Simulated assay, not measured.
Amino acid sequence: MAIEAIKTKKELSEAVYGFRASRIILTAFELGLFSKLGENSLNAAQLAAASATEPRACERLLNALCVLGLLKKAGGRFRNTKISRDHLVAGKPQFMAGLTHSASQWQTWHTLSAAVRRGTSVIKRQANRKDEKRRRGFIAAMHERASAQAPRIVRLLDLAAVSRCLDIGAGSGAYAMALARAKKSLRVVAFDLPEVLPLTREYVRRERLLPRIDFAPGDFNRGGFGSGYDLIMLSAIVHMNNAQQNRRLIARAAAALNRGGQLVVQDFIMGPDRTRPGLGALFALNMLVATAHGDSYTAVEIGGWMRAAGLKKIKKKDAPFDAALLIGWKE
């Protein structure tokens, strides 16, 4: 997803009113309209009954989806177009399950003005972490991106002397699986919260990699990670924490490395003025509205935490997308 600078009044207007198309798509997705249509052709009354919506309002939404090219209307009946059929119908191979998380993000992003005033998220969070639907949506969204990026990231790593890896905050296990596939003799441990690991296991089972990957429950901001690792992966993790939390996290990760081991941080790694990469600058606002302390960090900041943990030979590697790697070695 490229971020283009706004240069004309027309482009400015399109950016300002872009929320309308987003909201139309997300509402239709949340109501399950695309999946209810599937391969069928239905009228508005049928879809309203199937989605428990008011018939007139449902038809107006369906008409708007036709304008966006996601539905076609003929004789008062609606059907999916190829793009909606391929990507918005549950069960299809390219189904964008992560849009559940996108719908959740809508609820956080509308608080941006208040978050900027306060300097932190204003979203009230439940004390427990039992929202299974939201958790599944989040992991699905992360997997959609990570499963495409992980193999390309892993190809940038030196695995010659690596026999045991730890993937901290494994999520769907996309990086753990990419590491396992990259080197057949590699043993990988996927570390995440106890309520997340059953989902991790589902994704790993689906790819038939259970014999190659172990699972370790825990909170990456509490306790240690054991020892004996040649490579530890922190992919899309440091942006969730504040600086002090990251300093401690990286110190504990470094302590778990063997001598000669490497710690790999993959994230949006910002330039000194924090405007590049563009997606990282926007993502910093996502962290502002959604987390208590998260941010997008610079190479100087992340490198400083690595050096404080005793890591050496720190180097940055650019990835073929906006995120990058910072790698430090334990001597």
Rank of each mutant, 00 (worst) to 15 (best):
M1C: 03
I3L: 13
E4K: 14
Y17P: 01
I24D: 07
L26W: 01
L33H: 02
K36N: 04
S41C: 10
Q46A: 15
A49W: 05
T53M: 15
L62C: 05
A64F: 07
C66G: 12
N80A: 06
H101R: 12
S102R: 08
A103Q: 06
A103Y: 13
T108A: 14
L112K: 03
A115E: 00
K133M: 08
R134M: 11
S147F: 12
Q149M: 15
S163T: 13
I168P: 04
Y175V: 12
A176W: 04
M177I: 03
A178D: 01
A182C: 00
S185E: 15
F191M: 08
L193E: 12
T200M: 02
E202R: 10
V204A: 10
R212E: 05
R212I: 00
D219H: 13
N221C: 11
I232E: 01
V238E: 02
N242E: 02
Q244A: 12
L249S: 03
A255I: 01
A256P: 06
R259H: 10
Q262L: 05
L263T: 04
Q266M: 05
F268V: 04
P272T: 04
R274W: 03
T275H: 14
T275D: 07
A281I: 00
F283R: 00
N286M: 10
M287W: 05
Y297P: 03
V300A: 15
I302S: 01
W305H: 12
L311I: 04
K313L: 04
I314H: 07
I327S: 03
I327E: 02
G328K: 02
W329Y: 08
